[in-house]
């Protein structure tokens, strides 16, 4: 991965030196194991901050919304799909961007590692598909494929779908994965079981809105939960309000979600709210053959009418 870092720095430096961009958005090393901080560099001297490893799970497209500058942005597969969505939704212009594509081999799940580690984690390093976790007691080694984020392990778009620079040769796409196995499990339940399942899933929610705010799709000037005239949803911890928030947040992502996993990654209490967005992704794929963010030329599923759209809802 360190070659990725070198190549990102080289590219960023060149783009800044040649005044192709005013700023480059990427990641810098975090202060915690398995954490990196999204950052912006504005001069060639600063590019040595930039790094790349398997802890760059935050979706950088989130930092583009309504920006006016010429921007270089480091983008893995899912980030690039959200950049496409941003372009389609007029949140940024293609001409403003120099997309530095990063073929991605998946991000590691800090919670999985924390749960598997024996004691507090002091450092995490990786090499050749192995993740080495150092705790006060021991050094443990995991296969990276076993500790990937849930969305990365079923990802079928690891390579950027749009880019101006590529920092490495494309990686092979995964073909033998079933992205919707977890959704199918829920579909097999009775309504009562499903209701109880989500009751339990959402119970720890503290309504910090990290899922919403980490999501590049959530850019409304005022979110419906923050509206007060009229007030659509209560602001307390009532389960009906918490459920309404999660339901509508997910629904607003219908046909737009790339399953980048930023929401789940950001959640301080570890809720897998992707089980909601993925249901919609699955429906979009099955009903409209639609996957979000693959092309700037086509209109999103919910923004487009086709004569063969399913209409079995009509009585």
């Amino acid at each position: 991965m360190s070659t990725y870092t070198d190549k990102i720095r080289e590219t960023a430096q060149r783009l800044l030196k040649e005044c192709k961009v005013e700023m480059v958005i990427g990641f810098r090393k975090g202060s915690q194991p398995m954490m990196n901080e999204p950052c912006v560099v504005r001069s060639p001297e600063e590019v040595d901050q930039l790094i790349w490893d398997s802890n760059c799970g935050i979706n950088l497209a989130n930092y583009l919304t309504n920006r006016k500058e010429k921007i270089g942005i480091v983008a893995k597969g899912c980030d690039s799909r959200n950049i496409v969505t941003h372009i389609v939704e007029n949140k940024i212009a293609r001409e403003q961007l120099v997309i530095i594509g990063v073929p991605c081999l998946g991000m590691i799940d800090k919670r999985k590692i924390a749960a598997a580690a024996d004691g507090e984690i002091l450092s995490v390093t990786e090499a050749d598909g192995q993740v080495m976790v150092k705790t006060a007691q021991a050094t443990q080694t995991f296969a990276k494929s076993d500790v990937l984020q849930g969305n990365c392990s079923v990802c079928t778009h690891r390579n950027p779908v749009i880019h101006d620079e590529m920092i490495a040769e494309p990686v092979p796409e995964q073909t033998d994965v079933d992205p919707y196995a977890d959704v199918a499990e829920i579909d097999a339940m009775t309504p009562e079981q499903r209701h109880a399942f989500f009751e339990e899933l959402l119970a720890p929610c503290i309504r910090c809105y990290a899922c919403r705010n980490a999501c590049p799709l959530c850019y409304c000037p005022t979110c419906f939960v923050d509206e007060s005239k009229p007030q659509w949803v209560g602001k307390g911890q009532d389960p009906a309000d918490v459920r309404t928030f999660h339901f509508l947040r997910a629904y607003h992502c219908a046909g737009r979600c790339t399953d980048c996993g930023a929401c789940q990654r950001a959640c301080p209490v570890g809720i897998n709210m992707r089980l909601l967005t993925k249901k919609l992704n699955k429906d979009c794929l099955e009903l409209y053959g639609w996957e979000a963010g693959l092309s700037t030329e086509t209109r999103p599923a919910l923004d487009d009418y086709q004569p063969n759209d399913p209409e079995n809802f009509i009585h």
Binding site: V40, A210, N213
Partner: peptide
């Protein structure tokens, strides 16, 4: 502030 997503995690925890 660049990286901040303005969630309430820090203040709520």
């Amino acid at each position: 502030a660049f990286a901040c997503i303005n969630c309430g995690t820090c203040t709520f925890s």
